[in-house]
């Protein structure tokens, strides 16, 4: 069932189209991630859904009912949409307990019980209830912010880069914790982020946004494995894009003959390979048919190494990719290049 439906939504600031006629359907109980470089309009889209901004065109429907178009909008405080922002936006003048209970109407025992349940949900010690926000760590602040948003039992929660202020280790742990809390509560979630790995790991549906438009919408695997264009491919991960001639499900390229995932296509096209499809081995001891090249640059980064390889077949082309530091390669080594699995053909 579609809970949130956006159609041809537009918002501009002066001459800049921050959101340029986008449409999206969000299923009830699903997790959607909107990912894109900074300035692509993803935060504006979130603020339109929350009701902090009014659209210039298009509509937003919630559970089938219109909540915003260019003429009229239901104000933010009547939408029942929770939001957790980048820095948590905890009220500095209130304690943790008062922050969490901020949106609760009723006073008394119900309120205390509800706040304590919420503290348990986000796995915070109840002893922290009397603390001030500035006495909490970044991760704890985000948990309080989540509990505060959950307190009103919203049907949708918007997460505006809530993990980006946290350091790497804490970020993954907090993301997992938030994800499981929201799944357990069955709340529809929209995450906005510029971190593609976070988006892919978190969501059922990934929206890649660029310059106010949606470049692609799909499952994490779809958008990663079968991106619509080279730009999306490069945004979601390291990409090796090659010119190719297609025939009978195979592509002829400077890296040899590679199977592709589009049997019906023929003629010239561009194809995508991901680094994990490559096997780079020292050149000696491989068969004659293997494609060979020379390592022209190598940065050893511990578990992985950044390689730059010039294939023998195309001295002007450099393949750059990160590989597990399994073979003790050196700059100047001769290597064989093997490709596993089919390449993706850009439409």
């Amino acid at each position: 069932m579609t809970l949130l439906e956006i159609s041809t939504l537009k918002k501009h600031y002066g001459p800049v189209n921050a959101v340029d006629g986008v449409s999206l359907a969000i299923e009830s109980g699903s997790r959607t991630a909107i990912v894109g470089p900074s300035g692509c309009g993803k935060t504006t889209l979130l603020r339109l859904i929350a009701g902090f901004e009014a659209p210039d065109g298009g509509t937003i429907r919630f559970d089938g009912g219109l909540i915003a178009d260019a003429r009229a909008q239901i104000p933010a405080h009547k939408r029942g949409v929770g939001i957790v922002s980048q820095d948590g936006a905890l009220f500095p003048h209130l304690s943790v307990e008062q922050n969490i209970g901020f949106g609760l109407k009723d006073d008394g025992e119900d309120r205390t019980a509800r706040i304590e349940t919420l503290m348990d949900m986000v796995e915070l010690d109840r002893a922290m209830l009397t603390r001030r926000p500035d006495q909490l760590s970044g991760g704890q602040q985000q948990r309080v912010a989540l509990a505060r948003a959950l307190a009103r039992r919203p049907r949708v929660i918007l997460l505006d880069e809530p993990f980006s202020a946290l350091d790497t280790g804490l970020r993954v742990a907090t993301r997992k914790a938030v994800g499981s809390v929201l799944s357990a509560a069955g709340i529809t979630t929209v995450l906005v982020t510029h971190d593609q790995a976070e988006a892919l790991a978190f969501a059922d549906q990934v929206v890649v946004m660029r310059a106010g438009r949606f470049a692609q919408v799909g499952t994490p695997r779809e958008v990663y494995m079968r991106p619509n264009d080279a730009e999306t491919a490069a945004f979601l991960g390291d990409a090796i894009v090659l010119d190719a001639t297609l025939k009978d499900g195979r592509a002829t390229t400077i890296l040899g003959d590679i199977p592709v995932n589009a049997n019906e296509r023929s003629g010239s096209a561009r194809i995508l390979l991901r680094p994990e499809q490559f096997s780079i081995l020292p050149a000696e001891g491989t068969g004659e048919s293997a494609v060979t090249g020379t390592v022209v640059d190598l940065d050893f980064c511990g578990p992985s190494s950044e390689l730059a390889i010039v294939p023998d077949a195309a001295p002007d082309f450099t393949v750059r990719l990160a590989m597990a530091s399994r073979h003790l390669l050196e700059k100047g080594n001769r290597v064989s290049i093997e490709i596993n699995g089919p390449a993706h053909v850009f439409p």
Partner: peptide, 9 residues
């Protein structure tokens, strides 16, 4: 904004 999303006029 946060307060508005928590239902305050």
């Amino acid at each position: 904004d946060q307060a508005a999303s928590l239902g305050l006029s």
